[in-house]
Write a protein that binds this DNA or RNA. Structure first.
Length: 201
DNA sequence: TAGGCCATCTGGTCCT
DNA sequence: AGGACCAGATGGCCTA
């Protein structure tokens, strides 16, 4: 409802979904071709040998509804994964890093946005003070970014009110000007994905 | 082999 | 009524 992407977007064409979704799914695991193969065991397991006819009309209708719901749910999850992939796409990538897991992607994105916001804030401060061209992202800032000591989520509760100003997050995060913009990240070893994605909890 | 990650199924709940 | 969303369950694949 109040989200940026409304519910209706789950069926939108933003990420048109094709049937080769299994290739996307996994660096780590090749997901099985589910539609029929996984259906069978579960349905067999749940099938009741009730008295009377096993497949009344009502049961058929119910079954069809379930199958349709399964299909929608599958698409919904695929859309979710597509969005996650799009998010991975705008995060800085390291060539030797394997694909981020879902939770890592979310955590990294969270911290990354926080760091960029801080950069802008500090740059604004400096520009306001000196009139000099703003300093780009400071490595120390990045290293110290979202206080993983407490948790990766501290930006919303740590009292850094100005740093989390929505004004800095309002610009489109979808398309950084150039991949080179993120080169600073690669000069900060501690910024490997997994180290930059501290636990949220 | 255990544990992590993932895709899918499923039933419940809420919303339109 | 039907669809979206959610969380639990299940099973497969991969890696340490």
């Amino acid at each position: 409802m109040d989200s940026v992407f409304s519910d209706t977007d789950t069926s939108c064409d933003l990420f048109p979904h094709t049937d080769d979704e299994d290739s996307r799914g996994s660096v780590r695991g090749a997901s099985p071709q589910p539609d029929q193969q996984q259906l069978q065991p579960l349905q067999q397991k749940k099938r009741r040998r009730g008295r009377g006819r096993s497949d009344s009309t009502a049961q058929v209708v119910k079954k069809n509804r379930r199958l349709k719901a399964n299909d929608r749910e599958r698409n919904r999850m695929h859309n979710l994964n597509d969005a996650l992939d799009a998010l991975r796409g705008v995060l800085p990538a390291f060539p030797d890093e394997t694909k981020l897991t879902k939770i890592e992607t979310l955590r990294f994105a969270h911290n990354y946005i926080w760091a960029l916001s801080e950069t802008i804030r500090i740059a604004d401060l400096q520009a306001g003070k000196t009139g000099d061209p703003p300093l780009l992202l400071s490595p120390s800032l990045l290293v110290e970014a979202p206080s993983p000591g407490s948790d990766g989520c501290s930006w919303s509760s740590s009292g850094s009110s100005s740093s989390s100003s929505p004004a800095y997050c309002a610009s489109s995060p979808g398309s950084p000007s150039a991949p080179e913009d993120y080169s600073f990240l690669q000069q900060v070893p501690v910024f490997g994905f997994r180290s930059f994605a501290p636990g949220i909890y």
